[in-house]
Design a protein around this nucleic acid. Sequence first.
DNA 1: AAGACGGGGGG
DNA 2: CCCCCAGTCTT
Length: 378
Amino acid sequence: MAPSQAEPTPVETAPATETIAAPLLAWYAQAGRTLPWRDIDDPYRIWVSEIMLQQTRVDTVLNYYDRFLEQFPTLSALAEATEDQVLAAWAGLGFYRRARNLHRAAKTMISEHQGQVPSDPEALQTLPGIGRYTVGAILSSAHNARLPIVDGNVIRVLSRVFHLAGDPSRSAMQKELWRLAEAILPGDRPGDFNQALMDLGATVCHPVNPRCDTCPLQSLCLANKLGDPEDFPHPTRKTKVVFQQRAALYIRDRDGRMLLTRRPDAGLLASMWELPAVDLQDGEDPAAAVTTLLPSAKRARKIEPIGTVEHRFSHRHWTVHVFAAENPVASSPLDNDQRRWVHPDDLHEIGLPTATWKAVRLGLKLLDAEQRPGESPG
DNA sequence: AAGACGGGGGG
DNA sequence: CCCCCAGTCTT
């Protein structure tokens, strides 16, 4: 019913929390996405999906999820795998600590939680890599527990629907978001509701150009009423990017194997394999620095630059000067935990982070170029 | 409270 | 090139 003309224009008021669920669930029933971790009840598989999805888009996860579960079909299988196997399966997904935490948590679930993903929220959140969001996501999805979730999608939807001007990085705003996420959660089907909220954020309530015309919450959304949805949420501050020059060595033995070294077990790309490399000081000559990477102090004949690769992390930008060399040593023994010689055909067993792949590809291209001439067929 | 931690898709 | 994502943990 339209307000009387005589009355003053009412100040827009926030929608009642209980008005959200019905239209959202109705929309979800016909517009929700079909995903491999939907409509399943195996907490293990749901857990794996939620860890992969942390700060990672659905489309990216889809390239890993089935393969990972094929390799580690059960909680026991994951717990019994080696950390290197898990890291190899994770290679390219990023945030590698997720993989190590996943593996560690699996072992703990086997040893201290009767071989199950705990269904108790407090117990679950004790495990490494599982915070409040992931607890809510796993348990609401696997057991229909009435637990809220607040992720990037929910922050966007709620800050718009309720016109919340606060900075989501501040604890006061966080508290308000969790309070609202809990308040709008229906007693019935909280699992579907949480999934619906995220689908809405991902497919309709976009950061820019939100599709308000198709949104099931349009009529009650304050930002839509006031015409400023793109002003929400409060913009996040961006971290400053550090630029780093590096020199890397693609050294090949007589069997065509390349030397790989393992990164430190903490920090960036922890425990992942890469070509031997050094960080360069400002203005340092890469060609000079790279000679320190040779496995033998013997004269290195023929070190040649084969190109440069760029790799951008969220907070760091690498420029890697790649050099190629032949192993001055007759054979290439000495595989151990920190360095190993690997044939190109065996790289899949290790799993390389993307930054390493870019450098390795230069070396492989070199190999191709040497063989392609075909002037010496036999 | 702020920063570390990967990578990729889209404007 | 910039933004930012189905976050968690550390300092």
